[in-house]
Simulated assay, not measured.
Amino acid sequence: MAYNLLKGKKGLIFGALNEKSIAWQVAERAYEEGAEVVLSNTSVALRFGTVNELAERINSIVIPADATNIQDLENLIDKTMERFGGKIDFILHSIGMSPNVRKGRTYDDLDYDFFHKTLDISAISFHKVLQTCWKKDAITHGGSVVALSYIAAQRTLYGYNDMADAKALLESIARSFGYIYGRERGVRINTVSQSPTETTAGGGVMGFDALLDFSNRMSPLGNASALDCADFCITLFSDLTRKITMQNIYNDGGFSSMGMSNRAMAVYNRNLEECKDCK
C-alpha cells in the first residue's frame, strides 16, 4: 500500500544491481510513494546486473559512476540535478564489497591492498558522496541521507571479516558529517543496521546461510527482509522523521537486543555433544 510519503521528492539511489538488492527494493518503494529517482552503480556492475529493467519500470535513468572516484561523483551529481531541475531530497548509499571476503582471506591473513579497497568502496565512498554533495550544495534543506550498515560494526561475527571495520567507519562518517550537515543545512544522515539479507553481496560472506538461520532464530520477529528495509528507508526519507539524525537504527527483528533465544538454544543443545570441541 502506498501513502504518497515521498510525493514530489527526488532521490539518488546507489547500489541497485538486481531484484535481490535492497537498493532495488528501495527504488521501487520510493517510486510507489511518489518520488522521482536516479539510479547509479559502477559500469562493471551495470553490465552484470539488470538495473536498466528497473529504470524502465520506475521511469528513471541510470548514470554510471564509481563512488570511489571524485570525478565520477561530480559528474553524477551534476547530471542528477540537471535531471531533477534542482536539488536532491534523499540519497541511499547501498555500496559494499570486500576483495578479501571474495578471495577467502581470513581476518588474520588480510591482503592490505584488498583491505584498503574494502574501506574505500564500503565506507570512504560514503564520505566522498557526502563531501561532493556538500561542495555542490546538492541536497535540499531538510533532506535525508541513509547508508546501509550491519551489526558487525559493533559485535564480532565470524566470517564478516574486514567488512566489519568498513561498517564501523561508515557509521562514524554518518555521525561526523551528520553534525555538520544538520547544523549548517538541516540535512539528516543516518545508517540502518539491517538483518543479514539474501543479496548478491551478502551471499559472499563465509557461512552466510548459517548466519541467516541463526539470526532468524535469535530474532523475536525474525529477520527483516529487503522489502522490510526498503519500507523503513522510505520513512527515513519522508518528512515524518525530520528530527532523526546521526543515528544507527537497527532494522533486525530484535536481534540486536537479544542474548539467547529459546529457538537458538534448542538447536545448540541438540548439537552440543558433537560440537563440544568447536572453537
Results as ranks from 00 to 15, higher is better:
residue 63 I to H: 05
residue 44 V to W: 07
residue 54 L to W: 07
residue 52 N to A: 00
residue 247 Q to S: 08
residue 178 G to F: 06
residue 30 A to M: 07
residue 107 Y to F: 15
residue 26 V to R: 14
residue 190 N to Y: 01
residue 128 K to R: 15
residue 2 A to C: 12
residue 227 L to C: 02
residue 255 F to D: 11
residue 169 L to F: 12
residue 26 V to W: 14
residue 138 A to F: 06
residue 1 M to R: 13
residue 43 S to I: 14
residue 27 A to I: 11
residue 231 D to R: 14
residue 223 N to V: 10
residue 109 D to R: 10
residue 69 N to E: 15
residue 100 N to L: 09
residue 83 R to E: 13
residue 87 K to S: 05
residue 10 K to H: 09
residue 190 N to R: 06
residue 187 V to P: 03
residue 149 S to R: 10
residue 81 M to P: 08
residue 29 R to E: 13
residue 9 K to N: 04
residue 128 K to F: 11
residue 84 F to C: 02
residue 209 D to T: 15
residue 40 S to K: 11
residue 256 S to C: 11
residue 40 S to H: 10
residue 58 I to A: 03
residue 128 K to Q: 15
residue 93 H to P: 06
residue 53 E to C: 03
residue 152 A to Y: 01
residue 24 W to N: 07
residue 79 K to Q: 12
residue 266 A to M: 10
residue 58 I to Q: 04
residue 115 F to G: 03
residue 9 K to S: 02
residue 83 R to K: 14
residue 270 R to I: 12
residue 264 A to T: 15
residue 253 G to K: 03
residue 155 R to A: 03
residue 201 A to M: 09
residue 58 I to K: 04
residue 12 L to G: 03
residue 232 F to Y: 14
residue 166 A to S: 13
residue 17 L to K: 01
residue 7 K to E: 09
residue 219 S to E: 08
residue 111 D to R: 10
residue 183 R to V: 12
residue 193 S to H: 03
residue 35 A to L: 08
residue 238 S to K: 01
residue 160 Y to G: 01
residue 272 L to E: 13
residue 252 D to F: 00
residue 48 F to A: 11
residue 241 T to N: 09
residue 27 A to M: 06
residue 39 L to A: 06
residue 10 K to R: 14
residue 229 C to V: 15
residue 96 G to H: 10
residue 1 M to E: 15
residue 45 A to K: 09
residue 181 Y to L: 13
residue 157 L to K: 07
residue 159 G to P: 11
residue 9 K to H: 02
residue 125 S to T: 09
residue 199 T to G: 00
residue 91 I to F: 03
residue 24 W to F: 09
residue 260 M to N: 06
residue 213 D to C: 07
residue 212 L to A: 05
residue 202 G to Y: 00
residue 138 A to L: 07
residue 95 I to L: 00
residue 231 D to Y: 10
residue 207 G to S: 06
residue 164 A to V: 06
residue 212 L to Q: 12
residue 55 A to N: 07
residue 31 Y to G: 05
residue 237 F to W: 07
residue 4 N to S: 12
residue 152 A to W: 03
residue 268 Y to C: 06
residue 23 A to G: 02
residue 240 L to C: 03
residue 172 S to P: 07
residue 140 T to Y: 00
residue 248 N to A: 08
residue 213 D to M: 05
residue 36 E to A: 01
residue 55 A to C: 04
residue 55 A to L: 08
residue 166 A to Q: 08
residue 259 G to L: 06
residue 44 V to L: 14
residue 50 T to C: 00
residue 126 F to H: 12
residue 89 D to V: 08
residue 123 A to M: 12
residue 119 L to S: 07
residue 278 C to R: 14
residue 129 V to K: 00
residue 262 N to W: 09
residue 225 S to H: 08
residue 148 L to C: 03
residue 7 K to V: 01
residue 77 I to D: 11
residue 62 V to E: 10
residue 95 I to H: 00
residue 251 N to P: 01
residue 70 I to M: 09
residue 87 K to H: 02
residue 79 K to D: 06
residue 273 E to L: 10
residue 147 A to Q: 04
residue 39 L to P: 05
residue 275 C to V: 07
residue 37 V to W: 02
residue 196 P to N: 05
residue 116 H to Y: 13
residue 177 F to E: 15
residue 32 E to F: 01
residue 153 A to G: 04
residue 135 K to I: 08
residue 106 T to I: 11
residue 213 D to I: 05
residue 100 N to H: 02
residue 141 H to V: 14
residue 269 N to L: 13
residue 191 T to K: 11
residue 144 S to Y: 02
residue 201 A to V: 15
